[in-house]
Amino acid sequence: MFFYGTLCHAPLRAAILGRDLPVRPAALADHAVRVAKGEEFPMLVAAPGGSAQGVLAEGLTESDRARLAFYEGGFAFVTREVVVEAGGPVPAAVFWPEEGLWRDGGPWDFAAWLHRWGDTVTEAAGDFMALYGHADPAAVLARYPQMLVRGGARVRARQAKPTLQRRTAMPGDVQVAAFRQPYAHFFSVEEHDISWRRFNGEMTEPVTRATFISADAVVVLPYDPIRDRVLVVEQFRMGPFARGDAQPWLLEPVAGRIDGGETPESCALRETEEEAGLTLRGLVAGPSCYASPGAKTEYLYTFVGLADLPDGTGGIGGLAIETEDIRGHVMPFEQLIALIDSGEVDLAPLIVLAYWLDRQRPRLRAEAAAEALRAAE
């Protein structure tokens, strides 16, 4: 088979096939590799005089071909027979987009894709292939955006964290005997039959634990250090409603999930623009944390967003296509603290970020005042 795009990435091939697969350089004459318009994956197009660069994989088994067909079939790609140049003409199969489905979106840049998407797509491929033999590829593709979100979360979760006080996890400390996914849609639920190492060195008996899979998210509290004001947003929330809360409209920071291929910082800027109509001057990273680790995967990246909040800032925002109806409130910082004290603000991320900002205010206000003085000179 001739691979010309994402399958040139060896770790992705291994995630799909479950094994390493030797390849060698190859090219397909009179063709070009282009990105599918509005997507992040490539496709082949006819290009007289051009040359599509890629790799040739030989010695594939029937199982290999079936696994590749499942993965590529999810993106509506079918196989065609071609002849590639690999030290001589070699007949090969190639994945080709179904006619009329994807449009040419411009040149494909493998290096740029690898930098932004390589690790995330490789992680998502594991979730995709976990459904091999259990689901139709087209149905799996419908969940692919959520798989990319989770793939990005896994990549970030691998980053090293301090273990000065707590146990340093070692290979074999957690063992999974069985895995099930009884529900998968925008969110998903997973069940593990799992055991882990006790503090006395022994392993626990296998137990069944369910986990609610949600995205990593950002939390942003816009703050004007000159005026000492913050902006919080108000919106209807299903969690309080389903709990039976008499007041399901909450005061919150700006927040949103981190999409696949997106950094927490770029997500913070995007969400602030969408929910509050604000273009931030900068971000100050606050504490990152799990929201409810006993049952949820959600991990929060918190930021104070430096902004100008003059009178009249706020109003109605949100994306109509996501049925968002969001009202912004600008207030003095001390009013936010008073709302926390009264219980009207009862959202943990906003409370944590407000108290963290309280510690940073003297520094941020001094820096803003010095910057304003320099600008006036």
Results as ranks from 00 to 15, higher is better:
134 H>K: 13
159 Q>H: 08
118 G>N: 04
169 A>N: 09
106 G>Q: 04
158 R>L: 14
89 P>N: 07
127 D>V: 12
314 G>R: 09
259 D>G: 05
111 A>G: 07
265 E>M: 00
51 S>T: 10
58 E>P: 08
210 A>T: 14
240 P>F: 01
336 L>K: 04
168 T>Y: 04
367 E>H: 13
330 V>C: 09
323 T>Q: 08
33 V>F: 04
195 S>C: 14
273 E>Y: 15
205 E>I: 09
352 V>G: 10
303 F>I: 08
148 L>C: 04
374 R>K: 10
15 A>Y: 04
153 A>Y: 03
118 G>A: 03
81 E>F: 04
141 L>S: 10
30 D>A: 08
225 P>C: 10
311 D>L: 06
302 T>V: 02
215 A>L: 07
47 A>D: 15
144 Y>K: 06
323 T>H: 15
279 T>N: 13
38 G>C: 05
161 K>P: 01
141 L>R: 06
186 F>S: 10
214 S>E: 15
60 L>W: 02
360 Q>R: 13
32 A>T: 07
178 A>G: 08
54 G>V: 04
295 A>E: 05
345 V>N: 03
146 Q>S: 14
310 P>E: 00
58 E>T: 06
377 E>V: 15
271 E>F: 02
51 S>G: 09
196 W>H: 10
38 G>Q: 04
370 A>H: 08
145 P>C: 07
360 Q>A: 15
150 R>Y: 10
282 G>A: 02
260 G>S: 00
277 G>D: 10
19 R>T: 08
176 V>E: 07
234 E>H: 15
185 H>Y: 14
183 Y>K: 08
322 E>F: 15
226 I>E: 10
223 Y>F: 10
60 L>V: 11
140 V>K: 03
246 A>R: 11
225 P>L: 11
157 A>M: 06
144 Y>E: 08
307 A>Y: 06
153 A>W: 00
140 V>L: 02
311 D>Y: 02
126 G>Q: 09
157 A>V: 02
236 F>Q: 11
217 A>M: 09
260 G>Q: 08
367 E>L: 12
273 E>L: 15
26 A>P: 03
31 H>L: 08
362 P>T: 12
183 Y>R: 11
154 R>I: 14
228 D>H: 14
220 V>P: 03
5 G>D: 01
109 D>P: 03
365 R>V: 09
46 A>Y: 00
375 A>W: 01
187 F>S: 12
89 P>T: 11
110 F>C: 07
243 R>W: 04
35 V>L: 03
227 R>H: 08
345 V>K: 06
310 P>S: 03
352 V>N: 13
278 L>H: 01
224 D>H: 12
252 E>G: 03
184 A>L: 12
357 L>G: 05
376 A>K: 14
373 L>V: 00
343 G>A: 11
189 V>Q: 11
102 W>T: 10
209 R>P: 03
246 A>L: 13
347 L>H: 14
46 A>K: 15
360 Q>N: 09
355 Y>Q: 13
61 T>L: 00
293 P>I: 09
329 H>E: 07
85 E>Q: 14
375 A>Q: 15
30 D>S: 13
372 A>S: 15
149 V>L: 14
150 R>W: 14
116 R>G: 02
53 Q>M: 11
261 G>D: 05
364 L>A: 02
30 D>Y: 05
81 E>W: 00
